[in-house]
Amino acid sequence: MADVQPTRRTVLAALALAGSGALPAGAATPLTVYKDPTCGCCAGWAKHMRNAGFAVTEKPVADLAEVKARAGVPAALQACHTAFLEGYVLEGHVPAHAAERLLRERPAIAGLAVPGMPVGSPGMAGPDPEAYDVMAFTKEGVPSLYLRVRADGMPG
């Protein structure tokens, strides 16, 4: 078998592509989540998003209030963790199907939120799952209903 050596041109092209920050086609969409270092439900949500194909980076922080304020999350919509996805904010236990819809539609909003910690939302397993709302919010903090999620976790 012949010994195949990369050419200088091939190596330089690969280095240029690697340094460009370009993601190969089909690469997972990056998602960065800021959470309390000891929060189990936040880790459960991150796992849900990874299982849906997102490239999740978890960033434990001591002061989530500062992250939420910087992201413009309205107080009434706050939950336990704050994530950033391609210029949007995801607050709390937003299901992957809502994040995927957000990226398909690209509405002129700041982000999505699932206020509180509804049982049955991603990362919040428990008996008697409940239906809950995924709220959109603008940069000015104005909320609106984005979608309803049934108790079985499906859009309703």
Rank of each mutant, 00 (worst) to 15 (best):
D3P: 04
S20W: 03
A14P: 00
A108Y: 06
L103K: 09
H81T: 09
L102W: 05
L31D: 01
A65N: 14
M124C: 06
V89H: 04
P115K: 10
H81W: 03
C41G: 01
A83K: 00
L12W: 11
P118I: 10
T82I: 06
R70A: 15
Y88N: 03
A55C: 11
A46H: 01
K47C: 06
T57G: 02
D128T: 00
V73E: 04
G40T: 08
R70V: 11
R104I: 11
A13F: 10
L90P: 01
P127R: 06
E105M: 08
P95T: 08
C41E: 02
Q5V: 15
Y88H: 05
R101W: 13
A125F: 02
T82Y: 03
S20P: 05
P30N: 10
K47E: 15
K59N: 09
A65V: 11
G92R: 00
T57A: 13
L12G: 05
P118G: 10
G87M: 03
T32W: 02
T29E: 11
A96V: 05
G92F: 02
L12H: 12
G92C: 01
N51E: 15
K59H: 11
Y34D: 09
G116C: 09
R50M: 13
A25S: 15
A71T: 07
P127I: 00
G21N: 10
T38N: 12
G120I: 02
A27H: 07
V56R: 00
S20I: 08
L103S: 11
L112P: 05
L31N: 00
R106W: 10
E66S: 15
T10K: 13
P129F: 01
A62M: 14
R9W: 10
A13K: 13
Q5E: 15
A55W: 08
V61L: 07
V4A: 14
P127Y: 00
K47I: 12
W45Y: 07
E58Q: 12
